[in-house]
Design a protein around this nucleic acid. Structure first.
Length: 466
DNA sequence: TTAGCCTTGAAG
DNA sequence: CTTCAAGGCTAA
């Protein structure tokens, strides 16, 4: 077959690595993944993974596990909404301008590479770098916009308008229509992906690990102890986390919708649940922790899961969030005033204290490196009872403290005071997460937390360990 | 079910 | 008119 997309010649399909045949459903993919994605979405197919939902997808094995293949399609950023519900053929959709921009950028990059006389291997990371999601919410009696429109300027005049749909649920699904008129029917998602590394990232745009790597060695970058570098390496990339959790929530939601409509609170629980899975995954694959016996791993995680969850939420606000709103892991934003005006006194106080902590950390200008250290500090708590490898955990704790101290001393002007402040924030975090846990447990007892999730398991776990 | 090729049709 | 990303068709 003749190749018409010269700009895409060097690109490989981000799903399976096969030859790209053009833009399909949001990005450059091969013909087979295009077809697979279309069949899956159009026929509302549900797959089950026979393994551990982490099958490798490449050209040779892509047929083996459709579940993981579809997960990967969503993960790399293929767009459900680009599959037409009415099956209309031909024409152009709202992604047209985006494809055009992307093409221009690739051209630019190519020219730059040629001009500089060097080559850069094209990586999937470059193809799907920044990924902004945007959402507005009109709930119940009130018009509550929870995310600001910073979306496609071109989309505003677009022929195809966004249909009201449930959060994360693609409009093609028949279930989305069932939602019409329910309390959750008016979530609208606006999305934009810009395939440009050079463009200024959105508020939720994390720093890719490559960039961090470069920055660590750059002369003007912060001085970085070896261990801090290692912690950063373990830290998941914010954008990858965003698309992974969004993809999982899409699947979750299709399951839950069968039981009726989801409240905002329930949805937040499902989101927290997915965040917990990611936290466990992070811990399992992290330096030091992976060397522990499973029994010790369990004890540590059971003791600090809520601290880690809260730390994850808080660090996101400090690093990428903006004042007065809550940035979710999915990249969506909620106005804090909207949350507190609909919440009870306990939640209001929790949100306020959380906000104060965010403010403190913001003033201290805590960066990703320090948050990465704090996460390890939270995880390796030698005060946990009946640890088998107590000595090792204690020594890790000391090493982390040392690394954090060294880093803060080298990179801040307030010297020791700053380190002490960070530790104070850590104790505030712990007391806050403990309150949040109690709050959640009460909600669980009153039946408001969706069942069968990791969140509940952790809530019960800690109470039986105690 | 997959994946390569074909047809369609709005945008430019 | 051409382009090219949608959906459709069909042999393997």
């Amino acid at each position: 077959m003749e190749y018409r997309h010269d700009a895409g010649l060097e690109d490989l399909c981000p799903v399976c690595g096969d030859k790209v045949s053009g833009y399909h459903y949001g990005l450059l993919t091969c013909e087979s993944c295009k077809g697979f994605f279309k069949r899956t979405v159009q026929n509302n197919k549900k797959y089950i993974c026979a393994e551990n939902q982490e099958c490798r997808i490449d050209k040779a094995q892509r047929k083996r596990c459709p579940f993981c293949r579809f997960q990967k399609c969503l993960h790399v950023g293929m767009r459900l909404e680009a599959v037409r519900a009415d099956r209309m053929r031909g024409g152009r959709n709202k992604f047209g301008p985006m494809y055009k921009r992307d093409r221009a950028l690739k051209q630019q990059r190519k020219a730059l590479i040629q001009a500089n006389g060097f080559r850069i291997e094209s990586s999937p990371l470059l193809v799907s770098s920044t990924h902004q999601r945007d959402l507005t919410f009109t709930g119940g009696l009130h018009q509550v916009p929870i995310l600001h429109s910073a979306s496609l300027p071109a989309a505003q005049n677009d022929r195809i308008s966004y249909q009201p749909q449930s959060l994360l649920l693609p409009s093609y699904s028949p279930a989305a229509t069932q939602y019409q008129g329910t309390s959750f029917s008016n979530w609208t998602i606006k999305s934009e992906r810009t395939n440009n590394c050079a463009s200024s990232p959105g508020p939720a745009a994390g720093v890719g690990s490559d960039e961090l790597h470069l920055r660590a060695f750059s002369p003007q970058g912060p001085r970085m102890p070896q261990l801090v570098m290692e912690f950063l390496r373990c830290d998941p990339d914010e954008l990858q986390l965003q698309s992974k959790i969004t993809a999982r929530l899409v699947q979750e939601q299709t399951v839950w919708e069968k039981h009726g409509n989801l409240s905002t609170f329930s949805l937040m629980c499902l989101m927290a649940d997915q965040m917990l899975f990611s936290i466990v995954e992070w811990a399992r694959t992290s330096i030091f922790f992976k060397q522990l016996k499973v029994s010790d791993q369990m004890k540590l995680l059971h003791s600090c899961w809520s601290d880690l969850l809260l730390l994850d939420i808080i660090s996101r606000q400090v690093l990428y969030g903006k004042e007065g709103s809550l940035l979710l892991v999915t990249g969506q934003e909620m106005e804090l005033s909207d949350i507190t005006s609909h919440a009870g006194p306990t939640l209001v106080s929790l949100v306020q204290r959380g906000q104060e902590l965010v403010e403190k950390l913001h003033i201290l200008k805590v960066d990703r490196q320090e948050f990465a250290c704090i996460k390890f500090l939270v995880l390796f708590n030698s005060d946990v009872n009946q640890l088998e490898d107590h000595h090792f955990i204690e020594s890790v704790q000391e090493q982390v403290e040392g690394a954090l101290l060294e880093y803060t001393l080298c990179n801040s002007s307030h010297l020791l005071g700053r380190f002490a402040h960070l530790l104070l924030c850590l104790s505030e975090l712990r007391s806050l997460s403990s309150l949040a846990e109690d709050y959640l447990y009460c909600k669980h007892l009153s039946g408001e937390v969706p069942c069968h999730n990791l969140l509940i398991e952790m809530l019960h776990g800690k109470r039986s360990w105690a």
